[in-house]
Simulated assay, not measured.
Amino acid sequence: MDFNNYIGLESDDRLNAFMATLSVTNRTPEYYVNWEKVERETRKFELELNTLNYLIGKEDIYSEALELFTNQPELLKAIPSLIASRDTSLDILNIDENDDMSFEQLNFLVIDENCIADYVDFINQAGLLDFLQNKAKRSLVDYVYGVEAGIDSNARKNRSGTTMEGILERTVSKIAQEKGLEWKPQATASFIKSQWDIEVPVDKSKRRFDAAVYSRALNKVWLIETNYYGGGGSKLKAVAGEFTELSQFVKTSKDNVEFVWVTDGQGWKFSRLPLAEAFGHIDNVFNLTMLKEGFLSDLFEKEI
């Protein structure tokens, strides 16, 4: 199906065509680990970690650790990375043998040198001293490298959106160059007004559109939002409602403004009803297959 056939369909038929061409994934090889970030986070404490190698295999490791941190308290700044925490200030619940609970806070960014024993007690109770004494066999820099790769995997859900933004930006950039259009990633309403003198009504004062494309010949702006959902959930209903509302805001502009939504993912199979409602209000809803087939280029070409 080409763009003209698709855009001329009734909303239910457009939805069916959209659902039939959803992609299996948008995960490029770069999705899995951001090695640049892993390297950066590991190198932050490379000196401290190399010094802490001293504790590996020590017999009386509690006393050794207490002495080491007393003499070099700044080494404690590396501890959160060893226990896979991005937080530098940790709130801790302690439960004693009588099940009495108490709370404390340990700041690993600004070390309290009067509480070194408290830090060491925490490190011990967290199992880190046992690891250093009995299980660590190699450099702690190498160990933290692996920890950071694991922590980075938690950011994968955010990378799906980043991947879609990258795909959109590359696609728009190419089309804009071919057709003599202007464009801006992460465009705000204020930028569009000041740069192109186009009024864009928005639902949020800080709204940033993933891309805005401007035709000087038509004095027209296309506003593009993109996302990807590999799994279902209540968020998809909220997103469909948000973009439906946003498209209605955009239509109230006194200027020539058109809204475009590029979305994809198998998650939409579990949220067909809210997506169907969005299709009833938003004319330009495309997926990755449609981008590949040149639908976005055809949309801009339609009036140029």
Rank of each mutant, 00 (worst) to 15 (best):
A126H: 06
P185T: 09
S297P: 08
R27I: 14
E39C: 13
S160Y: 14
I56P: 02
V202E: 05
Y62W: 14
T188E: 10
G267T: 02
E199D: 15
F243C: 10
V239T: 15
R138D: 00
D118Y: 07
N227S: 10
Q133W: 04
R40K: 13
I167G: 01
L66T: 06
I111N: 06
I123C: 08
K157R: 11
R159Q: 12
A136G: 03
D118N: 13
S253A: 15
K44Q: 12
S89Y: 13
E104F: 06
C115G: 14
I304S: 06
K174E: 03
D99N: 15
D100P: 14
P185K: 04
L90A: 09
F295I: 07
E48A: 02
V200E: 09
K77P: 06
A126M: 10
L9V: 01
V285H: 05
T289D: 15
V239Y: 04
T263I: 09
I175F: 04
R170D: 13
P29I: 01
L49Y: 01
R272E: 09
R156M: 15
T244D: 06
E301P: 02
D118P: 13
D2N: 11
K235L: 05
T70W: 04
F286N: 01
T28N: 14
N114G: 13
S247H: 04
V141R: 00
K193I: 07
L9G: 09
L82M: 10
G267E: 01
A187M: 15
S190P: 08
L47W: 15
Q266S: 08
V200S: 03
K292G: 09
D12C: 12
F279A: 12
I7L: 02
K174S: 04
D130C: 04
D13F: 14
I116R: 14
Y31L: 07
N71V: 04
L168C: 04
L66E: 05
N5V: 07
G241L: 05
V202R: 10
R216Q: 13
R14T: 00
P80M: 05
C115I: 10
K269V: 10
D60E: 03
Y229T: 13
R14Q: 06
Q186T: 02
R14H: 11
L129W: 12
S85T: 12
V200I: 14
L128I: 14
I167E: 07
Y143P: 00
F122Y: 11
E48W: 11
K302D: 05
T51G: 01
K44A: 09
N107W: 07
L246H: 12
K157M: 12
N124T: 15
T42D: 01
L291Q: 08
P201A: 15
P185D: 01
D264S: 02
L140R: 00
T88K: 15
W222V: 06
T188N: 08
P274E: 00
P274N: 02
L52D: 03
F108K: 12
R272L: 05
W196E: 00
Q186W: 03
L181S: 11
E36L: 15
L288C: 05
R138Q: 00
A20T: 15
S297G: 11
G150L: 14
K37T: 09
